[in-house]
Amino acid sequence: MSIKQKKSMDETNITSTGNSISINSGDDRYYITNNEKKDHYSMVLPQNIDIFSGILKKAKNIADPQIYDYVLQILLSLNNTLHQINQTDIIKNNLSKLNLSIMSDESVLIEWNFENFRIGFSIEPNLSESSYYVVSDDKISGAYSSEANLLTPVEVDSVIQNIINFVLRNT
């Protein structure tokens, strides 16, 4: 299976790769705006795929601005990808919420837990050491498996597209 990054050919826009959407999570109403890619507005995700509840309030406690920006980039990409998929192919899955933890060394762990697999993003003080992982039990592919890779900013959108497709296939 090949996945191409969606090109926004049918939208009047200032980028080739489509809109960035800032995150609005239910009652939190916290805003993430990426000043580099200007966000117009945000829409609430449908409840079954609103994975951000509570996480934005926690993210505000991240002290290091570079780590904070990187965390926002990941959250933005997750939001954007879910919106894009849901626009053309309504997502019926019920997705669990993200968890965010700030470690004593200031690294940040974003975890996304499901019954048979777990996904994580680890953002390190040295950003070049940041990574993601996917761990699954034998119900997904017949054997327990784990997978971890470094994660660079330019790869975030592609990796998240893959991860969301994996999640939607296996939930």
């Binding site: 299976m1 090949s2 790869e155």
Partner: peptide, 30 residues
Amino acid sequence: EIEQQQQISLEPQMGQPTIPRILQTGTNRN
């Protein structure tokens, strides 16, 4: 700004970890 366009292959294998592989990379200057 550089906009990245990538094609990723995601081939699940029985008993093996699923590793995304970047097949092509395109860049666009904005």
